Structures are given as C-alpha cells and as structure tokens.
Simulated scan of single mutants.
Amino acid sequence: MQLLRTIAIIVIVYYGFKLLARYVFPFLLTRWVNKKMGQFQNQSQQQYRDAEQAKQFAKEHEGEVKIKTSKKTNSSTINDGEFVDYEEID
C-alpha cells in the first residue's frame, strides 16, 4: 500500500510541476519582463526630461559666470612650499 501511495505522490508532483511549468511560470515570467520594460521606459523618459531641462537651463543662463570663493583661510596652505625670490636682469 505504501508503494502505491508513494508512486501516486510522485505522479501528482510530476504532473503538478508540469502544469506549473506550462502555465504559471510563463505567466510570471511575462509579468516580470513587462514590469522591467516599464521601469526601463520610465528611466529613459526621466533621463530625456533631465537632458531637456539641462538644455533649457543652459539656454537661460548662457554667458553667466559664477565664482565661488571661500572665506576660510587655512594657515597650513599659506606656508606650503618654498618661496623663490626672482631678480630682474636688465
């Protein structure tokens, strides 16, 4: 009796896996692929929008120059290196 039960369980698992492989796995795979394609399209659209915004910003601010200076002076940077005194030759 145990042998028949074991064989029945093996057959049921085999056909169950076959059913899953034939119908469920492809369905899950197509859903996953569609989701990844949607994410890729959203990412490419976002990059396109960012590039367009950068072009627009460059057009609006063409010719402007901004200089950033820091008010902090570090004493170690003042004394770095050697000072060479040059003399002019006439």
Rank of each mutant, 00 (worst) to 15 (best):
T73Q: 12
L3S: 10
F40A: 14
T77I: 13
E88G: 09
H61Y: 05
Q41H: 12
E82Y: 09
F83Q: 14
T69P: 06
L4S: 07
L3Y: 09
F17Y: 04
L20G: 10
N79Q: 13
K71C: 02
S44F: 09
Y48D: 08
L3M: 08
F17D: 01
K66S: 15
Q53P: 01
P26N: 04
A54N: 03
Y15G: 04
K35V: 02
E52Q: 15
D90T: 09
V11Y: 11
K35I: 02
K59S: 06
F57S: 03
T77H: 15
I7T: 13
T30W: 01
Q41I: 15
G81S: 05
Y48T: 05
L28G: 02
G38A: 06
Q47C: 10
E87I: 11
T73I: 15
T69D: 15
A58E: 06
Y86A: 05
E64P: 06
V33Q: 03
K68R: 15
N42W: 10
K59N: 04
N79K: 09
Q2F: 07
D85P: 11
F27G: 00
L4K: 06
D85V: 13
N42K: 11
D90F: 08
K72R: 12
I78V: 15
Q46Y: 12
L28R: 00
Q2E: 10
L28D: 01
K71G: 05
K72Y: 15
L4T: 08
K35C: 01
L29Q: 12
E62I: 06
I9S: 03
Y15P: 04
H61Q: 00
A54C: 03
I9A: 06
T77F: 15
T73G: 03
I10S: 01
I10P: 00
K36Q: 00
Y86D: 03
I12C: 12
Y15W: 05
V33T: 04
E64I: 12
Q39N: 13
D80H: 13
V65R: 00
V13G: 05
P26S: 04
I89L: 02
E87A: 11
W32L: 01
F57D: 07
M1T: 05
Q47R: 12
S44P: 09
L3N: 10
V33E: 01
Y14H: 05
K35D: 00
Q41F: 13
E88K: 15
E52A: 12
P26K: 02
N34R: 05
D90I: 11
K72Q: 15
H61W: 00
N34E: 07
A8F: 12
D80M: 09
Q43A: 14
D50N: 08
T6I: 12
W32Q: 03
R31W: 04
F40D: 12
